[in-house]
Each structure stands twice: as structure tokens, then as C-alpha cells.
């Protein structure tokens, strides 16, 4: 371990760009994870439900984006100059936002029709229901998109992220890195700030927090907890869908069963960060993302175990997580 650490230090001094790029790899992964986990953690924080079907919202966002982006970018020719590249970027952004927006009604309806009925039930039923939902959603996606993997249609012979990658990062930062990944990191940061702003500064955000802290009290002062719950569940769905849409624009292939791993890793993130905490999910996601990439870099064999080992350590040392607040959103 000490040798590995010394080795790492030496490499970071002799070759800083390697260090930076491995960290960027981790940040990209971390921000995608954050967007998935933020939804999971606010749903848990406010509704008290661990939504096992949350990964399917991420998968649905990814598949919707593949279809939408293929359609929209098919309308224009491959970008050749900055103006057409800008148009292309706008279309991709539209596809991302529309794909994520579709998740709002989908998750809202799931909440009102199914999930709402079991808030007062034993948590094992919540797990069973959301697991059943997970299976149903997987199959519905398979019926709609087919069983295999899917990527957005190529534009001018290049995949979507390769088109975006034309924007030269090397000139700005001094090293070559995927511009699409940089934009994704940026988008993740915007989501984080927007969520903080929403819960700290807006009236609706404060109402949500009040409901999370004390349901009865909030109801007594005239807050419709039904509506708050629907809103929160739809928000969770939206951010998971956003993560899926952005992620499937990068090099990954989207498939109906991509949600399982995302779900399990999101568990790790929100447990490390502290259940129900946005800041916790953020720090947890970045930690899991960056540390697991560093670990894979130094000890490739640890790739699979790294996030879970981190989770075990954090839970044993600080069981409430780094920002644990037991169900309050802060």
C-alpha cells in the first residue's frame, strides 16, 4: 500500500497530465453517478422509500435519448463549421432535456398509481413493489426498444460524442480529453447547484424540506403532502433520466438492463454521503467516481470491489454517512 502510494506520488510529480486525466475520468463517472443518486436520495429523504426501480429511470432516459438524438441529428447534415456545430450541440441538448422531461410524467404516474399506496406499509413491501416495478419496466423497455444495445445514429460517420469532441480541449487545457465528458461534468455541476438553490432558496423547495422533516406539521399548515410527494418522485425520475440521457450520449451502449449496476452504485454513493442529503450524494459520488478510477489505475484488479470496500469502510467508521441527517434534506 505504501509502495503504491509512493508510486502514485512520483507519477503525479513526473507526469501531471496522467494524474489530471485519471481524475477527469473519475469526475465524469462521479457526476453521472451524482445525477442518478441525487434522485434516489431525495426520494428516500422525503418519501422514506428506497426506490429499487430508480435505475430503470436512468435506463429509460438513456434509451429515449438514443431515439430522440438519432431523429433530431438526422434532420441536419454533419457539422462542418462552428455555426453548424453549435446547431448540432443545441439539438443534442434538446434531445437530452426532452428525454429527461419524459421521465417526469412517467414517474409521476407511477408515484400516484402505485407507490403512494404503500407509504404507510412495512418497508419490505416498498422493496417488493419497487423490485416488481423494476422487472416490469425492464421488460417494457425491451418490448419498445428491442433486447440488445443501442447507440445514437452516427452523424457523418461519427458517434455523437466524437462529433462534439471536435471542439479542441487541447488548446484550452494543454492536454487532449473528450469535450463531451467535460460538458457532462459541467452539466453535473449545474444540476448540483440548481438542486442546492431549489432547496435553499425557493418556496417550493422549502415546502419539500418541511414535509420531509415533519409530514403531519406540513399537512397541518396546509401543504398538500400528496402533491409534494409526486413532485419529489418526478424530480427523482427527471434527474435519473437526465443522467441516462447524458451518459448514453457518451461512448456507452444503452440497453434495457443497464439500470441494475447504476442502482447498486447509487446505493454506495448515497450511503457514503449520508441518506437523504444532496451534499452527501454529491461528495459521495465524486469520491466513489474519483477514488474508484484512481484505484483501477493503480490496481486494475480492484475495479469491481473498490466502491463497495469504500462503502464498508465509511459505514463502519461513520455509519450515518459523511453528511448523514436521517431523512432531512439539507
Amino acid at each position: 500500500m505504501a509502495v503504491a502510494a509512493a508510486d502514485l506520488l512520483l507519477q503525479s510529480v513526473t507526469d501531471p497530465s496522467g494524474w489530471v486525466i485519471h481524475t477527469l475520468n473519475g469526475l465524469f463517472r462521479g457526476f453521472i453517478l451524482f445525477m442518478i443518486a441525487s434522485g434516489l436520495t431525495i426520494i428516500f429523504g422525503v418519501l422514506g422509500i428506497l426506490n429499487l426501480a430508480h435505475g430503470e429511470f436512468y435506463a429509460l432516459g438513456a434509451l429515449l435519448f438514443v431515439s430522440l438524438a438519432s431523429y433530431l441529428t438526422g434532420l441536419v447534415v454533419a457539422p462542418t463549421d462552428p455555426a453548424s456545430l453549435l446547431l448540432f450541440g443545441v439539438l443534442v441538448l434538446v434531445a437530452i432535456l426532452v428525454a429527461a422531461a419524459v421521465l417526469i410524467p412517467v414517474s409521476a404516474v407511477i408515484e400516484t398509481v402505485l407507490v403512494r399506496k404503500i407509504y404507510d406499509r412495512d418497508e419490505v413491501y416498498q422493496l417488493l413493489l419497487t423490485f416488481g416495478l423494476l422487472l416490469v419496466l425492464i421488460d417494457l423497455m425491451k418490448i419498445s426498444w428491442g433486447p440488445g444495445t443501442h447507440r445514437p445514429d452516427a452523424v457523418g460517420g461519427e458517434s455523437l460524442n466524437q462529433v462534439v469532441d471536435v471542439i479542441p480541449m487541447e488548446e484550452w487545457f494543454g492536454f487532449s480529453y473528450s469535450s463531451y465528458a467535460i460538458f457532462s461534468i459541467f452539466a453535473g455541476a449545474v444540476v448540483f447547484l440548481a438542486l442546492l438553490w431549489f432547496f435553499d432558496r425557493t418556496k417550493t423547495g422549502r415546502i419539500v424540506r418541511a414535509t420531509a422533516i415533519n409530514r403531519e406539521m406540513a399537512t397541518a399548515i396546509g401543504v398538500s403532502s400528496d402533491r409534494v410527494f409526486t413532485l419529489v418522485f418526478a424530480m427523482g425520475g427527471f434527474f435519473a433520466g437526465l443522467a441516462g440521457a447524458i451518459h448514453s450520449g457518451s461512448a456507452i451502449a444503452a440497453s434495457a438492463d443497464m439500470g441494475g449496476d447504476a442502482l447498486v452504485l447509487s446505493f454506495v454513493v448515497i450511503v457514503v454521503g449520508g441518506l437523504g442529503s444532496i451534499r452527501g450524494a454529491f461528495v459521495g459520488a465524486i469520491l466513489v467516481g474519483v477514488l474508484s478510477r484512481w484505484m483501477t489505475w493503480q490496481q486494475p484488479a480492484l475495479e469491481l470491489a473498490a466502491p463497495f470496500a469504500l462503502m464498508v469502510v465509511v459505514l463502519l467508521v461513520r455509519p450515518e454517512g459523511l453528511y448523514g441527517t436521517w431523512g432531512e434534506i439539507e
Binding site: 404503500i118 413491501y125 417488493l128 413493489l129 416488481g132 419496466l137 425492464i138 421488460d139 417494457l140
Partner: peptide, 19 residues
């Protein structure tokens, strides 16, 4: 081929009708 759908519906049925 829709075995997930089938299993999922059984689980949801149990939650609501056979708790």
C-alpha cells in the same frame, strides 16, 4: 420471452392483494 414482466406483475400483485 416476457418473463420479467410476468414475475414483476406477480410481485406487485402480492404487495397489493396478498400482503
Amino acid at each position: 420471452e416476457h418473463f420479467e414482466l410476468l414475475t414483476g406483475l406477480v410481485l406487485i400483485f402480492v404487495v397489493f392483494f396478498m400482503p
